[in-house]
Design a protein around this nucleic acid. Structure first.
Length: 497
RNA sequence: GGCCUUAUCGUCUAACGGUUAGGACAUCGGCUUUUCAAGCCGGUAAUCCGGGUUCGAUUCCCGGUAGGGUCACCA
């Protein structure tokens, strides 16, 4: 029996093995995340392997993209195409000799044969099976005297015994599949590249992978893998079938065709890597506790294969937003400021009064109001940021509280006098004491006297010029004494027009 | 169609035969020195259906239904 020393050492080795066919999406990354977390938790090895055996589907730049996606999350691999490792290379296209070696063993054992049919001929078999509403099985057409394999024809596995297979899955327990699941599948394609079905088995063997973590769409083809393990006398690794992530619209498994997006889009949209890990961790796994916000380290610590779910979970962007907001609140003020700055559009940054100081001051109130980077942009576009950096303009009537009790007759004069009194009150506060608390203390008694809405609303509006904003005390403290008084004076000016 | 597989609030999930079926997101309402946000408090909301087994089923078994996966010279 072929066994790898790492295997018998019981040191955990997992891998993430994407094919470079474009961007990776959340489903792929969740698989990587679990494999990585499991290896990390067990002080094992996490391998990144590129399964580039289908040159027709290959997309330029995919490998870099996969690596960038993982790196963004902080998922580091111990062995991979860029850093090498004891079992290099880590790209299947560079491992052709290995596949050939094992293919030859199978040929010698009489367990592999050259496929004499053309693709078109096989297609006809398939169509016929389809029309007859029965599964297509190549082995129904297994040739009696196949030609000698010269490396130019596809090489097919010759299933030695057609039987039911049973196996243990660490997530789902005991699994079995009938003989229908077994077929003479292709080992090496006509172009000399191996198929996934064959290549991954050889790689996992040579790289000492102990736990194969992959989506449960592979459950149907597991008997094929099992028949190869048997034929080659390879010890079975542990199987860990992961439940699918469903798209948010329907109940379909998330996939590129169904609108799954490029994982790095989430970075652009302002989702934090830790939030992303936190969110992904909980689609398909739960530690049974009610704690919902986890750092990556906490997740790794808590992660347990036994608690991986068997049924799929829907991707829910609202929850992602909530988790992201929670992680945003966990950031230091400096990090928050940096984060916000990234999303502030140029038209705000070019405002005359724009400064890093003001940005620093408004950071808490922005963080409080947004769940992701897109929403910072929305705030900016809605004018909810502009007034911090430039004096607002508005009509004098908008200065009045909606249920104002100020008499209609001479309301402009009355409001002007309120604001004038206001200014003198604020003027009593020194520059250095001009903070939220002191401002509130000064204003409040007077506001009570006058009717709170009648004075608080105009003050807030004079400072912001918009219907919705933080309260006037916060606004005044951020704007500073000079600017606050200047804006209030401006309100008086507007009332006189 | 064959085979495999799944099934708790709208969503993510907890409850390894005994709970008023718990939490979170979302939603709705209230409270915060009358806008907005945040925060706090509270409400609405679920065991797919039918049979068993059992003193007792969300939980175990069978059937149905519905969903998902797979049946490639794709992974």
């Amino acid at each position: 029996m072929i066994d790898n020393s790492k295997n018998s050492n019981k040191k955990v080795v997992t891998r993430f093995a994407p094919s470079p066919t474009g961007f990776v999406h959340v489903g792929n990354i969740r698989t990587a995340l679990y494999a990585w977390a499991f290896a990390k938790k067990n002080n094992g090895t996490f391998i990144l392997r590129i399964e580039d055996t289908d040159k027709s589907r290959e997309v330029e730049g995919s490998i870099g993209h996969v690596m960038a996606s993982l790196k963004w999350l902080g998922i580091e691999w111990n062995e991979g195409p860029d850093i090498g490792g004891p079992n290099a290379p880590y790209k299947q296209s560079e491992r052709l000799d290995s596949y050939k070696k094992y293919a030859k063993i199978l040929v010698e054992k009489g367990l592999a044969y050259a496929d004499p049919y053309t693709e078109e001929e096989v297609e006809i078999f398939r169509k016929k099976a389809d029309e007859e509403k029965r599964p297509f099985l190549y082995r129904d057409h297994r040739p009696d005297n196949p030609p000698i394999w010269d490396g130019t024809q596809p090489l097919r596995f010759k299933v030695p015994i057609i039987k039911s297979y049973e196996w243990e899955d660490l997530v789902r327990g005991h699994l079995k599949a009938g003989p229908e699941a077994l077929d003479d599948f292709i080992l090496i394609k006509g172009d000399g590249y191996p198929t996934y079905n064959f290549a991954h088995i050889i790689d996992d063997l040579e790289m000492g992978v102990t736990h194969i973590m992959r989506g449960d769409e592979f459950i149907s083809s597991t008997p094929k893998f099992l028949s190869i393990y048997d034929a080659l006398e390879i010890k079975r690794p542990e199987f860990v079938m992961l439940p699918p992530i469903m798209g948010s619209e329907g109940k379909k498994k998330l996939g590129k065709r169904d609108g799954a997006k490029d994982f790095l889009e989430y970075e652009k949209e302002g989702y934090l890597p830790d939030a992303m890990i936190n969110f992904l961790a909980f689609i398909g796994w739960n530690h049974g506790d009610e704690k919902e916000i986890l750092t990556p380290d906490e997740f790794i610590n808590l992660f347990d294969i036994k608690q991986i779910h068997i049924s799929g979970g829907q991707f829910n962007e609202e929850k992602l937003d909530w988790i992201n907001h929670e992680h945003l609140k966990l950031l230091t003020l400096e990090k928050q400021e940096e984060y916000i700055s990234k999303y502030i559009p140029d038209n705000i940054k070019s405002l005359p009064n724009y400064s890093r100081d003001i940005l620093h001051n408004i950071t808490p109130i922005v963080i409080e109001r947004i769940k992701n980077g897109k929403e910072i942009l929305e705030m900016a576009n809605n004018g909810d940021l502009t007034y911090f950096f430039s004096e607002p303009t508005y009509s004098k009537d908008s200065l009045f509280f909606k249920s104002s009790k100020i008499p209609e007759d001479n309301k402009y004069e009355i409001l002007s006098s309120y604001i004038t009194n206001f200014i003198s009150l604020l003027d009593e506060i020194s520059d250095s004491d001009f903070n939220k608390e002191n401002i509130k203390n000064k204003i409040w008694a007077y506001a009570e006297e006058v009717g709170r809405g009648d004075i608080l609303w105009p003050m807030r509006f004079a400072l912001s010029g918009v219907d919705k904003s933080p309260d006037p005390f916060v606004l005044a403290s951020i704007l500073g004494k000079n600017e606050t008084i200047s804006r209030l004076k401006n309100a008086i000016k507007i009332l006189k027009i």
